[in-house]
């Protein structure tokens, strides 16, 4: 009885409300207006398409079920959150990553790209979002000495078109047998197979490999290289030159995630050392 009474009164109450609302023409109009004001923000939630590589662990990798993960991916999402835009990640092989940006397949590249003068001729860069040196790894206990003479006749694997490729081509040059690969993973495969003596790449990337099952027999040798002539001012987000507004937005977002701790949370997830300065 109690229940049915309550129900009855509820039904009556809602009917009354409907009636009042229906008659009071002004109220709904006001509501509509408020909605209309709120909508533009929701409607124009900008979609920023971001080119990522998906084959450069731990920065960008594709999981077994096809999902993207890694430092670059997390940073991309954090930046989009900070800019209040919707992120759409587009996977693209390294070889074509700049041409695809210029062809407007996406609007920005977050793919651990070093800011070099050569690249700056084609694209604009945000401020750096991290910095990283390049290093060699080789089999544990090997007697290779890293120097122009020491590497003579040795084979070194690098990923084609990376700054590591340019550095070793420019600084170690002719005497070294440089083998270029489309992806870093192929370089590791040939290191494992014993087809190459060393792999030269970004220290972070190699660090991750040496921690893995396949890489546990390999260690860093030689110096860390950060020569700005090759390695530029660090790692930045590449954008089309004409998109200056978006570049500024990314710069502000980098600042914001540095300030609010989002950056450090992500950094700690992957590295136990500082990488921004």
């Amino acid at each position: 009885m109690m229940l049915s009474n309550t129900l009855k009164s509820l039904v009556i109450a809602s009917f009354t409300t409907l009636l009042i609302v229906g008659c009071g023409n002004k109220e709904p109009a006001k509501e509509k207006k408020a909605e209309a004001e709120a909508q533009p923000a929701a409607k124009t939630t900008e979609v920023v398409r971001i080119g990522v590589e998906g084959a450069y662990p731990p920065f960008s990798q594709t999981t077994k079920d096809g999902k993207l993960e890694g430092f670059d991916i997390d940073i991309a999402h954090a930046l989009c959150d900070s800019m209040k835009v919707k992120c759409e990640l587009v996977k693209q092989d390294w070889d074509g990553i700049i041409p695809a940006l210029l062809a407007k397949k996406y609007d920005a590249i977050i793919a651990s790209m070093s800011m070099t003068d050569e690249r700056k001729e084609k694209v604009a860069f945000s401020n750096h979002y991290y910095k990283s040196p390049a290093r060699f790894i080789t089999k544990k206990g090997s007697d290779i000495k890293v120097s122009k003479e020491g590497l003579k006749g040795k084979s070194v694997a690098v990923q084609r078109g990376t700054v590591s490729d340019k550095f070793i081509t420019g600084e170690f040059g002719e005497g070294v047998d440089i083998k270029r690969y489309g992806t870093q993973e192929e370089a590791y495969l040939d290191l494992n197979a014993g087809r190459v003596d060393l792999v030269f790449a970004d220290a972070f990337v190699l660090l991750e490999f040496t921690k893995s099952e396949k890489g546990k027999d390999y260690e860093f040798i030689g110096d860390s290289y950060t020569d700005p002539k090759y390695f530029g001012e660090g790692i930045g987000i590449a954008l089309r030159k004409e998109d200056t507004a978006l570049t500024e937005k990314f710069n502000a977002a980098i600042k914001a995630i540095r300030a609010d701790g989002a950056y450090d949370t992500i950094r700690k997830k992957y590295f136990d050392f500082e990488i921004f300065e």
């Binding site: 070889d95 001729e121 078109g161 489309g182």
Partner: peptide, 21 residues
């Protein structure tokens, strides 16, 4: 694709060096 520098390999090296596909 397996590290050899044939005609296409050479083109890929030039492309990656100058970004001139």
């Amino acid at each position: 694709v397996i590290t050899l520098v044939d005609l296409f390999g050479a083109a890929k090296i030039i492309n990656s060096r100058y970004y001139a596909p």
